[in-house]
């Protein structure tokens, strides 16, 4: 969201929702970059393509010089208490896939955040464009259960094949076991 506007509004007198209402009225259209909504986070540019725009966007960015897909990871926003930094028009979903692209010529970076609904956790793979996502996409599948369509080897990578559940989901327990300091009876 652009750093903005509300010069005439005294925030302390307004409830939070109404500030948002005003903002939405003033900004009906989100800012666009490369044809998709864009936001800024701590000075870093973040693009928010929809699932349908995702591959086409990465493809055109690759033509523009973003040759390397540096990073791909998942986030599970279940139970996230704070305000999600999303531009207007982008509906928050439970999962997000976050992709980092690097342009060596401009020495610039772009980050993509794709919303993935809980009911249908899947996304098209970037493998045909960036083979570097092979391991990261498998990791996201392993840890979050988000499937990548068209990935040549969509299997677990860190956990054993027969493992049940996706550990980095927020509703997956940490798996802590109580520590017993004495009185344990093990034959040694």
């Amino acid at each position: 969201m652009s750093d903005a506007e509300t010069p005439s509004i005294d925030e302390s007198e307004l409830a939070e929702e109404s500030v948002e209402d005003v903002l939405e009225e003033e900004l009906p259209q989100p800012e666009l970059l490369h044809g998709v909504p864009v936001s800024e986070s701590r000075g870093q540019v973040v693009l928010h393509p929809s699932r349908d725009e995702y591959v086409a966007l990465v493809s055109s960015l690759r033509e523009l010089g973003y040759w390397m897909c540096v990073d791909l990871c998942g986030v599970d926003y279940l139970g996230y208490g704070a305000q999600r930094n999303l531009p207007a028009g982008v509906a928050p979903e439970r999962f997000e896939v976050v992709v980092g692209l690097l342009n060596h010529t401009d020495r610039s970076r772009l980050r993509l955040r794709v919303q993935i609904p809980e009911s249908d956790p899947q996304l098209a793979t970037l493998f045909p464009l960036h083979p570097s996502v092979e391991n990261p996409e498998r990791e996201v599948f392993d840890m979050f259960g988000i499937r990548f369509d068209g990935h040549p080897d969509m299997s677990r990578i860190l956990m054993p094949d027969e493992w049940i559940g996706h550990p980095l989901r927020k509703d997956y327990e940490l798996g802590r076991i109580p520590v017993q300091f004495k009185g344990a009876s093990t034959a040694r």
Binding site: S41, R42, Q44, V70, D71, Y80, G81, A82, V98
Partner: peptide, 24 residues
């Protein structure tokens, strides 16, 4: 709250850290 990605050059290459904070 917010999210950020930072990278440094480790002996093995780009070491990055992506943190999402919810203000806690």
């Amino acid at each position: 709250e917010g999210e950020v990605y930072v990278a440094v050059e480790s002996p093995r290459g780009e070491l990055g850290c992506y943190i999402v904070s919810d203000g806690s």
